[in-house]
Design a protein around this nucleic acid. Structure first.
Lengths: 204, 204
DNA sequence: TTTTATTTACGGGACGGTATCGTTAATTGA
DNA sequence: TCAATTAACGATACCGTCCCGTAAATAAAA
């Protein structure tokens, strides 16, 4: 990326972000092995050497793009999780979460990340560290809260429960005939209900 | 593929299988975008034209290669599922299933299939129809059985429960630091237990 | 029945064209 | 004045097609 102050012409930070954005787009469109430095440079409106000067290769560039340029949806603060009941947090977040998860962008990114997990583990590692782990810790806090309340079975491993929820949803959106946002909302409720994190309101 | 009886020299069926095998290998190694007809032909020991004579393009070829992959894990017959208790079926199958699912081959194929789900839906559709659906029907039968017995909550949607089990496992094997067979066995038991399909034996 | 002609499959390789690679040279700008 | 940048470079890979010489089957003729 942009180096420290040197003597000659400084690098343009906007160039960095343009390259990273182009890299993420092309990763999603074509995957790691389908994307090329040449395309990324072209889409960023930049010469190839401008890319090579900053990153040693495709993998490093895409990994950093995954770290830095994925739009983050809003996550409740840890304090909220401690204070509020899981049921309340979940009911407040579910519609937006369903919308996000059912979107074509999420589907595409999820597919490409999964597809790269074995051949390019560093990519998945970056995604895991920067995007998944923070959310998992939040979910684990919610689950522990719910286990104290008795809604979730106390002997269950929170990591396994999280995998079941996340795995079901990600797997569902990659299946043929993926759900739209409304169907996804019902689906997530069914999953959470099975775990014990959600109880349907009487009227719905 | 090999056409019906014609006038001239018939096509060699072994050539078909050699091409399909090479196509599946290269799909797993490099993904749809990374594989090429040229490589597939070379690995199969065959001229390019011999491939083009049978398939119109990479996608069709790989789709058929995925269809015809013969998974060697044994599936219990539907009669077994009706007759035996789910607990018994599961306990009998779990160790082999854990071994399969934790293997590098399964991880790699799973990653590539997921990775192609959005960009090449026909590929996922072929996999779904030929490999996933039959197993889902078996699992659904087991779940209905278990719901009658009261082990699994009767109001739960079997499709959702299957997604939770399959999703958790596939997601788990694609995470950084994937489990070995022994750890996978414990993991699957935890998942099944949460669903209600498994109860740990007293001594273990 | 035997021979010959015809037809298709096959491995191998060449083709014109395009895309990508990583490097080198020339230009631009703070 | 020095680093950033663009453009050009040769090399390699792949595409889809075509041709060569050979092999293997069927169909027609002797």
């Amino acid at each position: 990326m942009t180096a420290a102050r040197g003597r000659g012409r400084p690098r343009d930070p906007q160039t960095d972000t343009a390259i990273l954005r182009a890299a993420l787009e092309l990763f999603i469109e074509r995957g790691v092995e389908g994307a090329s430095i040449e395309q990324i440079a072209k889409r960023a409106g930049v010469g190839k050497l401008t890319v090579y000067r900053r990153w040693s290769g495709k993998e490093e560039l895409i990994a950093q793009a995954v770290e830095q340029t994925i739009p983050r949806d809003l996550v409740p603060s840890p304090e909220d999780v401690e204070a509020m009941a899981p049921q309340e947090i979940i009911e407040r977040m579910l519609p937006a979460a369903a919308e996000t998860v059912a979107s074509p962008e999420f589907r595409a990114l999820t597919a490409r990340m999964m597809g790269s997990a074995v051949s390019h583990p560093a990519l998945m590692a970056a995604y895991w560290k920067h995007h998944i782990l923070p959310r998992r810790e939040l979910a684990a806090a919610m689950l522990r809260h719910a286990q104290k309340d008795g809604a979730v079975s106390a002997d269950a491993d929170p990591d396994v429960l999280i995998d079941m929820m996340v795995g079901a949803v990600t797997w569902r959106v990659l299946q043929p005939d993926p759900p739209d946002a409304a169907e996804m909302l019902r689906y997530i409720k069914a999953v959470y209900q099975q775990i014990g994190l959600y109880r349907p309101s009487p009227e719905s």
